[in-house]
Design a protein around this nucleic acid. Sequence first.
DNA 1: AAACATATGTCAACATGTTGTCTTATTCTA
DNA 2: TAGAATAAGACAACATGTTGACATATGTTT
Lengths: 164, 164
Amino acid sequence: MELANRIFFKLYQCANMLHKTGSRAVQDEGLTTQQWAVLGALSRPEAAQGMGVGELARYLMVSRQNLSGLITRMTRDGHIEMSTDGRDRRSRLIVMTESGRHVWMDLAQPKIKAYYEQALQDFSMGDMAHTLHYFLKLLDNMEKIDQKIPESEEDDGHHGVPEI
Amino acid sequence: MELANRIFFKLYQCANMLHKTGSRAVQDEGLTTQQWAVLGALSRPEAAQGMGVGELARYLMVSRQNLSGLITRMTRDGHIEMSTDGRDRRSRLIVMTESGRHVWMDLAQPKIKAYYEQALQDFSMGDMAHTLHYFLKLLDNMEKIDQKIPESEEDDGHHGVPEI
DNA sequence: AAACATATGTCAACATGTTGTCTTATTCTA
DNA sequence: TAGAATAAGACAACATGTTGACATATGTTT
């Protein structure tokens, strides 16, 4: 399994470098790699009405508690705000503010575009398609590992009294 | 750059899942994904004599300050220990302890092997080779981005008086 | 209505990651 | 030898990530 070992070590290094270089690319806008992911998620047409907290946490694949801190900081910075969902009053929708949209579209996007171009230097269209394909496959397998937990069915919350 | 966008978002998700599922795979041994990377680095024949702090930080692509905390915890847990380098007395060599080697070889390795098998489910030998190739290429580009900093040449330290 | 499920908030403890600053040893070099 | 570079340690501030536990409000089902 020497190949497997090298793959995961490189993935680990890639993760560290993405965090470092990605955050550095948008630091002038007061953003980080994670906040960039949040704004990216909220800027999708599918999320035009906003996204619930749990929904966004699942989408980004981070814990609800972790996202909570992110939301606090981004609300403080005026990038996003919460609004209540009319249909389900338990849900609170996270939406981009006008200021957030400006920061994202006008300030961050050019930096991100430049970052992508450098990070994917010498990648052909086919290379990119293959890379994405392997990422999707890897992610799929890791999600299966994640769900393969016998006790406490996948998430938190108290699903009724545990029969003592 | 829609493809680029998807690639980096998947990389971000992969990083989160590697952290989560990897740490969970070795939690019974009291390890985390990062500590697993450290032990993996130290168990290589090239590192038989140990590795310096800065050397290991560069190898793992993390900051010296971050590695410092990791070292403290792993020393506390008895997995590693520091020894002085005879050749360069500024350097301190990080080496695995007997206990650390046991935890790594006998306890963690079987779990890691199983993890690799699940995470690389349905990857052919060729798929793995390609995946590794794209990771290496991506990492190479990100390293170039990292080094492309005009001021404060790449690392910390005081390189003489900065001409006031 | 009562029980259960869902959606979120909050607090805590901990491990990782970054940057910046300052100090102390060494070693290398002009 | 003096100065510069290198290797580490230590501290701080901050952002991210995890898990666990407990509270609260609101839907849904029986």
